[in-house]
Nucleic acid binder design. Structure first.
Lengths: 215, 215
DNA sequence: GCCTGTGAATCCATTCACAGCT
DNA sequence: AGCTGTGAATGGATTCACAGGC
């Protein structure tokens, strides 16, 4: 199904991007879409859309466009988002709680089956979603018995690497890290770091520059 | 202070990255750092560190390295994070609430001065941080009177563009968008889209591929 | 005529390798 | 000797432009 080995990382990110408007188009009954239109909806170039898709096959019809539903299915298949994934989360502060409760994740097939913390105050409490907060010391066993595939880290930054290592040792194959500490991992695992204070610093940079033009 | 116009976007992102370990090094009393060491801590190449910094000036001493404190200050100055920024947030669901409460933001100088929602159930409620949730209809006036510079959007995706437009019309110069809808903006404004379900899809892609090697 | 798929050309970012300073 | 700063070389990704099929 997949043509060949080396696909640019930005291409993968954009596939996820493309799937968003496709989902909407499908609901609204639009069953045909051109690269031009999809590109517009995602704020990229049409050549980019065509090239990205061409890495994985020939999904379109020349002179016509892409079938919305078929294309969306292909993308989901490529991204492996047409199945359920089993996750756990460590660090049940404000952010962690918000993330487990997020209905969107569940809708998209990301299912939290365990929540951990080290704070004795929190351990044992039941979350609105029904999960009971477990001691982090149980993570090793639960990752195995519940076949947890992805670990989400929302601890303070100082604990991020240790927690990630613990989860990966226990068998987790991917880490989604929300702390400001850049987590590293062996080649067998994948890590995504999502530090959103970094995004704010980016905004600050641009604002700072445009303001200095005025003064 | 800044050498010239076109600086690569990845460079800006990495400056924020560099500031994290520098902050720690400063606290631990390390007052000298080489590009090699800093690179190691951030998981990039030392040439990359030097090139990134060289866009903005000559901060190091040949044969010696960089002064930790001076370098951190330069970076903060470049990113314009050595001052306070005034923010508001729209959409007080789980995620929105978690973000306003985030102590880290405040510590870094990002100060929320208003929180909005459209849900009459939520309007008027007081948040733990002390802010009262206001009706979105008051956003126009409050953005002006409180000199709000950055708007954070944590609404459902369907409302993201409308809310962003409203905030930008009112005078906000930057949007941090947490919804899955890709918000676009006029040239005078900056938008950062932080869709973390996209990060999960990325992980799923890699996991899906490595599993298909086994089967 | 219209729109996809794709080699070729272009653009951009990273890495190399070394000159220059301490 | 050690480490920065930087032109030159390399490697990737995006855009161009058009051939191929509807």
């Amino acid at each position: 199904m997949i043509k060949d080995s080396k696909i640019p990382a930005p291409t993968i990110e954009r596939l996820a991007l493309y799937s968003r408007p496709l989902e909407n188009l499908l609901k609204s009954g639009t069953d045909l879409i051109s690269s031009e239109k999809l590109a517009y909806l995602c704020d990229v170039s049409s050549a980019q859309v065509r090239k990205d898709l061409a890495y994985f096959g020939e999904f379109g019809i020349r002179g016509v466009g892409y079938n919305t539903e078929a294309l969306l299915n292909e993308i989901k298949n490529i991204l492996a988002t047409n199945r359920e994934w089993t996750l756990c989360i460590v660090g049940m502060g404000n952010l962690g709680s918000a993330i487990v409760e997020n209905e969107n994740f569940k809708k998209m097939g990301y299912k939290f089956v365990a929540a951990f913390d080290v704070d004795p105050e929190k351990i044992g409490k039941t979350l609105p979603c029904g999960l009971i907060i477990e001691s982090l010391s149980k993570a090793g066993k639960l990752v195995q018995s519940l076949h947890i595939e992805i670990g989400v880290v929302t601890t303070p930054p100082s604990g991020a690497q240790k927690v990630s290592d613990l989860l990966m040792d226990a068998g987790v194959k991917a880490i989604l890290n929300f702390t400001s500490f850049q987590v590293s991992a062996p080649a067998c695992c994948v890590v995504e770091n999502v530090d959103f204070t970094m995004k704010l610093e980016n905004l600050a940079y641009h604002l700072g520059r445009s303001q200095s033009f005025i003064s």
